[in-house]
Computed example of a mutant assay.
Amino acid sequence: MELRHIRYFLAVAEEGNFTRAAEKIGIAQPPLSQQIRDLEKEIGFQLFHRIPHGAELTTAGEVFRERVLAIPAKVNEATEVARRAARGEIGSLNLGFTGASLLNPIVSRLIRTFRRDHPDVTFKLEEGNSVELRDDLLNGTLDIAILRPNVNDPGSILTYPLSSEALIAAIPKSRDPQPDCDEIDLLSLKNEPLVLTPRTIGLSLHDTAIATCRRAGFEPILGQPAPQITSIMAMVSAEQGISLVPECMRQLGLDNVSYKQLRTLDIKVSIATAILKDNSSPTAAAFVALSRKISRVGKSEAKHPDEI
Results as ranks from 00 to 15, higher is better:
P227V: 05
I308L: 15
R84V: 00
H304C: 10
L203N: 15
R175D: 13
L205F: 06
I27Q: 02
N104G: 04
Y8D: 15
I43F: 05
I232C: 11
E56K: 12
N76I: 07
S108F: 08
H304F: 14
E40S: 02
A11Y: 05
F45C: 11
E192N: 04
L133Y: 00
V195W: 14
P220L: 00
R67D: 08
S108Q: 04
Q29S: 09
R292W: 04
R67K: 13
I229Q: 02
N104V: 08
R115V: 13
A60I: 02
S258Y: 10
S33R: 15
T208F: 01
R37A: 07
A166Q: 14
A216I: 03
R20E: 15
G44E: 03
N139H: 06
E40Q: 04
S101T: 03
N152Y: 13
L290F: 01
E301P: 05
V81A: 12
Q228C: 07
P225F: 02
A100N: 13
L196M: 07
P52W: 05
S188C: 09
D38H: 15
I232G: 05
T212G: 01
E15Y: 15
I36M: 14
C181T: 12
I271A: 15
M233I: 03
P31Q: 07
S295A: 11
L222K: 10
N279M: 02
A28E: 09
P161I: 07
A274N: 11
L254P: 01
A274Q: 09
I51N: 02
T208M: 08
D143L: 00
Q224I: 09
L3G: 00
L102T: 08
S280I: 14
L57R: 01
P30Y: 13
L222P: 03
E307A: 15
G91V: 00
P119I: 07
G223S: 07
T79S: 11
E239C: 13
Q261V: 14
G241V: 09
K293Y: 13
S231A: 13
L167R: 11
E239M: 10
S270L: 09
L110D: 00
A60T: 08
R134E: 10
D182Q: 13
I25V: 09
T59V: 13
Q261I: 14
R112I: 01
P31L: 01
A55W: 07
F48H: 06
D136I: 01
L186W: 01
D255K: 12
L3E: 06
V288I: 11
F48A: 11
N104I: 05
P30L: 11
I275V: 15
T113F: 04
R65L: 08
L102M: 12
E14R: 05
F45P: 15
G88D: 09
G96S: 04
H5M: 01
K303T: 14
L265G: 02
A22S: 10
I146D: 08
V63I: 12
P225C: 01
A21K: 10
I71M: 03
P119E: 06
L244N: 10
R65K: 13
I51E: 14
L93C: 02
I294K: 07
